[in-house]
Amino acid sequence: MELDTPTLLLDRNKLDQNLEEMSRFAVENNVRLRPHIKTHKSVNIAKLQLQAGAVGITCAKIGEAEVMAAAGIKDILIAYPISADLKIQRLRKLLENNVDLKVSVDSLEQLKSLQKGLEDTPFMLEVWIKVNSGLNRCGVEPGNEVVELAQAIVFLSKLRLGGVFTHAGHSYAAKSSEEIQRIGLEEAKAVVESAEACEKVGIPVPIRSVGSTPTYKFAGKVKGINEIRPGNAVFFDAIQAGLGVSNLERCAVTVLGGVAGVYKNRIVFDTGSKTLCLDKGAHGNNTVNGFGHVIHHPEVTIERLSEEHGVGIFDETTSLTLKDKVQIIPNHVCTVVNQFNEYIVHDGSKVIDVWNIDARGMIK
């Protein structure tokens, strides 16, 4: 089967290895696994994760949750604060369809909006308090602010507290494995101490959940943590390899690109920014060289991207010629996946299936 370019390739053997690694860690450390599907956005892969022992899934946006719910996946955490009236109407529809829904909360104003939006329904919504463990994005501060929010939830008729969680995304800016470990331990501490503070005033917190592919193996071992939510670990990518979290050989997704031109001091691939995206690191840390790793061609660095062109440079010479095809490991696989409609699934030597990227473009 000849494939056109650019095409998104998924190595089934590497995918299965990555799925097994997450599941094994969860079993060995007696924690629940609730993987984030924003990396793969695929019903097929989400169901494989559930078959491998995941208790449910995590979504970034309501649109992703709607796609997964329509496919029969019912235990869903939306790890994003929701307060707009239009979005609460969509939450109501998910509840009407018997979705076991959990939603992130991090402010009193948001609690009021959710309560008001559900008051004329028979539903009670489970909410999880988002704690800021250092990323300084969403979330209340650990300790007292968590307790104050938990106390407010207790008095609301349409909301119930199900958990405390965080995401240590700032681990992507770490300069060493030791720093990643430190961030992971701080991540767990923020959740555990916040949950314990709630329980000291008589408010139970059943779930204490941590995420982040770089940190989950550190945070997930801390006493008191009982759930992990890795996302990128389903595939890995060049940034994870740059961080030392994984290696390039474990990356399950590549982009099949074509050589569109070879010149004296440069080579052009048909994989521009609309294919490879512009990530060169995360949260201030440039962990990669160029805009993707060209497999078997270390002499080539993809130096710059325009929309349809990936411009590579090389030292002295390259064996690549016009019309050749290459596989490129993306820097940040999550954003690249969202550019494609489907995965071409292969076993390393031949194509074995085609899977839809069902939640592609679901950004609302």
Score class of each variant (00 low, 15 high):
Asn97Tyr: 03
Glu126Ile: 11
Ala70Met: 02
Gln51Pro: 07
Ile129Lys: 01
Gly117Thr: 07
Gln110Glu: 15
Ala84Phe: 11
Glu119Gly: 00
Ile76Pro: 10
Leu86Thr: 06
Lys93His: 10
Asn132Trp: 02
Gln89Met: 15
Ala65Asn: 04
Glu96Gln: 12
Gly134Lys: 14
Leu91His: 01
Lys61Thr: 10
Val131Pro: 01
Gln51Arg: 15
Lys102Arg: 14
Thr58Pro: 00
Lys116Glu: 13
Val99Arg: 02
Ala54Lys: 03
Asn98Thr: 03
Gly63Val: 04
Leu108Met: 13
Ile57Trp: 09
Gly56Cys: 09
Ile78Leu: 10
Leu108Glu: 13
Ala65Ile: 05
Ile78His: 11
Val127Met: 08
Asp85Tyr: 12
Lys102Cys: 10
Leu135Ser: 14
Cys138Leu: 14
Glu96Thr: 01
Ile82Glu: 04
Cys59Ser: 09
Leu118Ser: 11
Gly139Arg: 01
Ile73Ala: 06
Gly139Phe: 01
Phe123Asn: 03
Ala84Cys: 09
Gln49Arg: 06
Glu109Pro: 01
Asn97His: 12
Ala84Asp: 15
Val67Cys: 12
Ala52Asn: 12
Cys138Phe: 14
Phe123Ile: 05
Thr58His: 00
Gln49Tyr: 10
Ser83Leu: 05
Leu111Met: 14
Glu64Ala: 06
Leu91Phe: 02
Lys112Leu: 12
Ala52Pro: 00
Gly56Asn: 06
Val103Phe: 07
Glu66His: 03
Ile88Pro: 07
Val127Ala: 07
Asn132Pro: 00
Ile129Gln: 01
Asp75Phe: 10
Leu135Ile: 11
Val103Arg: 06
Glu126Tyr: 01
Lys130Asn: 09
Val131Ile: 12
Leu77Pro: 00
Asp100Gln: 13
Ala60Cys: 03
Pro122Met: 10
Phe123Thr: 05
Thr121Pro: 07
Val105Asn: 04
Ile129Glu: 00
Ala70Cys: 01
Glu64Ser: 08
Asp106Tyr: 09
Gln115Arg: 08
Arg90Pro: 06
Ile57Glu: 10
Lys130Leu: 09
Ala84Glu: 15
Ala70Trp: 02
Leu77Asn: 00
Ile73Val: 13
Lys47Phe: 04
Leu91Ala: 02
Ile82Met: 06
Lys93Cys: 03
Glu109Met: 12
Glu66Lys: 02
Gly72Ile: 04
Leu114Tyr: 06
Leu101Gly: 03
Ile57His: 08
Leu94Gln: 02
Leu125Cys: 05
